[in-house]
Every structure is written in C-alpha cells, then in structure tokens.
Design a protein around this nucleic acid. Structure first.
Length: 371
DNA sequence: TCTGGGGTCCTAGGACCC
DNA sequence: TCTGGGGTCCTAGGACCC
C-alpha cells in the first residue's frame, strides 16, 4: 500500500490532500475544531517530545522527511508539515479491507504485515497486466487507496519491483530483464540486506546488485560466512525458491514503551513499577485474546545511551495470567544492571502454546515456584 | 530534545544427556 | 595420562523488516 497510514488519514481529512503530512508521535495532537467549523491541525514545529515518523506523504518525503526519522529532527526539515497521531484501529480495518479485496481475485496470500502481502498468481489464468490492474481496482474500490504491485517469477524480485514505480505503480519483470533492470539498483534494495550488510559490501567496493552478482562467492563467504555469502550470491542473480506461505502461528507477543523522559531505577521506582505492571497486564490481555499461553517470559531494557539488553526465563509450563507474567518478568529484571537511566521497558512472551491444549501453571502452584 | 513498537530469524556458547 | 561425538534446550545479542 502506498504511504499507508498517511493515506488512510487523508481519507478522513481530504482537505489535506497535496500537503506534506506525517503520522507519528505518541503525544501528537488530534486536530481541533475551530469556531468556524474548520479543523486546526498541529504542525511539526509545534511538537515537543520523543517519537518518530511512522509514515509521511510523498509531499513530505520530497522535503526529506521519511519513516523512522525522529520528529524533532524532521521538524527542522519540514516545520510546516501537518502532524497527525497514529490511529492503529483504522489502519487495521483498512488492512483487512484491502487483503479481503485481493483475496476475491487471488486467494493464495502471504501476510507481510499491516500494509504488504505476497500473492501467488501462478494459478490465476489471466494476462498479467490486466490482472494487476484488476487487483489495483479491487483494492481501490474497497478502500479508496492506491497500492503498487510488482509481478515477477519469485518473491525476491517482486518485492524489489513493487518499489520501482511507487506510488500507484505496476512493474512486471521477467528473468531475462534482471541484468538491465535489477543489476543497476543499490544492493540494499534486496530484502534482507540492511545498513550493516550494505556498509560491509561498500567496503568491498560493492554498491549495486550487479556488482554483488559479479563478486566471487568465495569473497562473500569469507566476509559474511558460508550461508550468508551463498545467499548474497543467489539473490544477486535473482534466484529465490521460497513459496508463498498462507498461514503461520505467532512466535512471540510483546509490549514495550519508551518513556517521555529517562527514568532511574531507584529515583523513579514507583513510576517504573506501575509501567512494568501495566505492560504485563496488557501482554496478558493480548495472550488471552489471541488464545495463547507462553512458556518463556522475557524483558527488554533500553538505557539512556540507547544500548539494549534482554533477559528471559523459561518456565516449567505455560502462563497467560498477568500476575504470573509480572512475577516471571520481575525475576528477569533482577538480572539486569540498573545503574544507568532507562528509556524503554518491554515485556515479551515467547515459546507460545495454543491456550486450548496448553499445560498451565495453576496460580496456587505458582506461589511455590522459585520465581 | 536524535533514534517507536511490533515482529522474525540467525548465531553462539553453555548445560545437559546419551 | 587428558578430555569423542552427537543431539536438544536455554539464554543473549544483533540484524533486519513493516
């Protein structure tokens, strides 16, 4: 989906169309109704506090403002951009709508998050371009939103292609076109090559996918390890055999929060304890609502210097009760250094078991366990 | 007053078992 | 008179993605 969160907001506030708009910031102000009936929108320059941009419109991107950028920094680049708080319930609703719309045409769909899917078109007997147009039309009819589609022989290439003609684009690619259309692209366009790997590649003089394809696989194996080296070689040649996976079970569920100001374990103990317990309760709610128990409870701390640590604890059986999670997480907390101020606290449930057939730790037994 | 929140996958070492 | 070779589970960290 194109600029998904921002585009959903524009459905609600069509008067903002054509303007630089960003979504993000937990404490961002909702628009305020004016006496004349119009809405007054917050501007980036008015924002104070922590937070990042989750999505920006293409007009905002033209000003250098992208997802992941800190709001305070983006305010310097685009002080007049409109800032809207995120409305996740609405995004989930539109996510459901666009996926359902695609499923009426091609039901073999792999979920890749709130705004992205892979579709297996192998069994859909229709000319490719007409099919792509029909899918886009179905998405638009269901949501009023545009999307960009890449069609190719595999997921790796389709993912790259979907990005080549954004927004509202269609890119169709055959294997014979890899040298001309894929090799000139930056190596980090490959899903799985992030900042670290591209930096390592750059140090080897490898910047494009074509340069990666031409690199000796022994060199890649030497710098990245055998498995990753062989993978880099394969993907640079456009090779990918992964199937479209239509169903999967969650591996972990977590809740975390970044504080408005860094907190100290001793000095701000009461506040930290309240936040910690609230996170555990929300995690317990999530688990029960989704029908899972967890056998491994973990915590995450991010210190003021942004360095993070995790600790986890595997239990003899599953838990999904807030107090039990709180106690297990409390044990984890004891194993973590607490001298530096803390900016983030999180709680995670791993080793998930379907609640229906999970062996649980009864609360009465829990009291006797060493945590 | 840089740097969210929710995930997945991989690696690597140590404990423990046969 | 050194101490094999598998295997699984647990823990911690890190890269990466949406």
């Amino acid at each position: 989906m194109d600029a998904f969160f921002a585009s959903v907001e524009l459905l609600r506030y069509p008067q903002l169309r054509g303007q630089a708009v960003v979504v993000g910031g937990r404490s961002a102000q909702q628009p305020v109704a004016q006496p004349d009936g119009s809405l007054r929108f917050a501007r980036l320059r008015d924002y104070a506090g922590r937070g990042v941009i989750t999505t920006s419109t293409y007009e905002a991107r033209a000003l250098g403002v992208f997802s992941g950028m800190g709001l305070m920094k983006s305010a310097q680049l685009a002080p007049d951009a409109i800032l809207l708080p995120a409305n996740f319930d609405a995004y989930r609703e539109y996510s459901r709508k666009f996926k359902d719309a695609v499923a009426t045409i091609a039901p073999t769909i792999e979920d890749r998050g709130i705004d992205e899917i892979y579709i297996d078109l192998g069994k859909v007997a229709e000319e490719t371009l007409a099919l792509a147009k029909r899918i886009k039309q179905a998405v638009f009819d269901a949501t009023g939103l545009s999307c960009s589609i890449g069609i190719s022989p595999n997921k790796l290439l389709s993912k790259i292609c979907s990005d080549l003609d954004k927004p509202d684009g269609i890119t169709i690619l055959g294997l014979d076109e890899i040298p001309a259309r894929i090799w000139p692209l930056a190596a980090k366009k490959i899903n799985g090559i992030g900042p670290k790997a591209s930096a390592t590649l750059a140090r080897l003089g490898i910047n494009t996918i074509g340069e990666l394809a031409a690199a000796p696989v022994e060199l890649l194996a030497q710098k990245f390890g055998r498995t990753t080296g062989a993978w880099l070689h394969r993907v640079a040649h456009g090779r990918d055999e992964r199937p479209v996976v239509t169903a999967s079970e969650p591996k972990s569920i977590s809740r975390e929060t970044t504080f408005e100001r860094d907190l100290h374990a001793r000095h701000d103990r009461a506040e930290l304890t309240a936040i910690f317990s609230a996170l555990c309760r929300r995690l317990a709610d999530d688990l029960q609502r989704k029908g899972y128990a967890s056998r491994t409870i973990g915590i995450k701390l991010r210190y003021a210097d942004f360095h993070s640590v995790t600790r986890d604890l595997t239990l003899p059986a599953g838990v999904c009760d807030g107090d039990q999670i709180r106690r297990a997480a409390g044990e984890c907390l004891k194993r973590v250094p607490l001298t530096q101020r803390i900016r983030l606290l999180g709680v995670r449930a791993g080793a998930l078991l379907p609640l229906a057939d999970a062996e649980l730790i009864p609360p009465a037994v829990q009291a006797e366990l060493p945590f």
